[in-house]
Design a protein around this nucleic acid. Structure first.
Lengths: 219, 219
DNA sequence: GTCTATAGACGGATAGAC
DNA sequence: GTCTATCCGTCTATAGAC
């Protein structure tokens, strides 16, 4: 939203005589570093070097390192608007629609870098100050939960999140092959049923009373 | 297995007199910090303060910060021995057995802290130097893969990993409630069928050729 | 607008006294 | 074996020259 693009992508080498999109260059470099190394391991100096400018310029444009981080987090999608649409048509097929939304967002480079920056940085630290907790997670969790009918909404929602966050880790963060390169349709075919089951499958058993395995698991 | 155990667990113990378990104190504090804050955010000084000793002592016992980290990673289980056992009895019910093994390891405090340290620190950095990649992941991935019959072993294995790593993130790293407190049996009832499906369900479709959704997903 | 110079803080690591 | 004192490096951030 700020100045994510407008620059011809990539990091142009050489010196820009007048005053081109220096701010955009810095922001792009910052996103790249935050996404790849997290907040702590990212240095203003490295960002500046990567953008081909002086470290002081970074402060000049963005203020503190925290401000730069926040600027780099501008995400071009709003989960609070998109997620409810998934459930508008009912619970039937919602697993697949949710997964498709999830994939379309993460496959978009403009969205992936800020998201990676957020995830990578948040996973590095513990506790309640986590941005991931208060930010995106709430923006995604709440819409899903409010769309679920049963009193088991919390469990179902978080099971869905567990599978999706697992995809984030393996496919986008660790880039495990061949899963990272698996075509979208294949992934949908494999994983959508899982999400759908978490969303609307009957409870395996009254929770808290079973002392042996639930019936859902064979053997 | 340097000196991971031998000490009577908890960090409150130890004789004070001549040569108490100072080394153990330091190691426990280090594990705690690495598990909670990752490698970068952990400082020798903080570890020393937490253990109630001088920073120089840390270096005296463990050398560099890297050495301390490696010492803190001693994990009291060996996946290369345990995972194959899961598949010895055949693929039937392997999903549940694998999940139970996974849970029993992560619910053990002696194992959870080093594992968290490893995961948290590895997720903070990108690229091939990741310890998670070369270490535990390989130790777990390989045994699973070698136990699978089909030529789709890679995909199946990584889908399994995606769900399990999602549990790591939501249950043990972010500690999302109520999932983090969900009884083990409930979790097995919910998630084991997912793993089992990834392990032995027929292929949703020949991969790479489908241009619309696979049959596994409704809608 | 862009860069030089530097202040100020923090953390890893070492030498050596007790 | 344990602690004091200190060196050295890196980083954020600012002030000010061109």
């Amino acid at each position: 939203m700020t100045a994510a693009d407008g620059a011809p992508a990539g990091r142009g080498r050489g010196r820009r005589p007048g005053g081109p999109d220096t701010r955009g260059q810095i922001l792009a470099a910052a996103r790249h570093s935050f996404a790849g190394k997290g907040f702590g391991a990212t240095t203003i100096r490295a960002v500046a070097a990567d953008a081909g400018v002086d470290p002081a310029l970074v402060h000049h444009y963005f203020g503190s390192k925290d401000d730069l981080f926040l600027a780099a987090l501008e995400i071009p999608v709003d989960p609070r608007r998109l997620v409810p649409q998934v459930f508008e048509a009912g619970l039937d097929g919602a697993g697949e629609r949710l997964l498709r939304l999830f994939l379309s967002v993460w496959e978009d480079p403009h969205a992936r870098l800020p998201l990676l920056a957020l995830v990578r940085s948040s996973l590095g630290r513990e506790g309640d100050e986590s941005l991931l907790r208060q930010g995106i997670l709430r923006m995604i969790l709440e819409p899903i939960r409010s769309a679920l009918p049963t009193d088991e909404a919390d469990h179902r929602m978080q099971l869905v999140i567990s599978q999706m966050s697992g995809l984030v880790v393996t496919r986008y963060l660790l880039v495990l092959e061949p899963l990272a390169s698996m075509p979208r349709e294949d992934l949908v075919a494999w994983v959508a049923p899982t999400l759908q089951r978490y969303l609307d499958a009957p409870l395996p058993r009254e929770r808290g009373v079973a002392s042996s395995a639930g019936p859902g698991a064979s053997g």
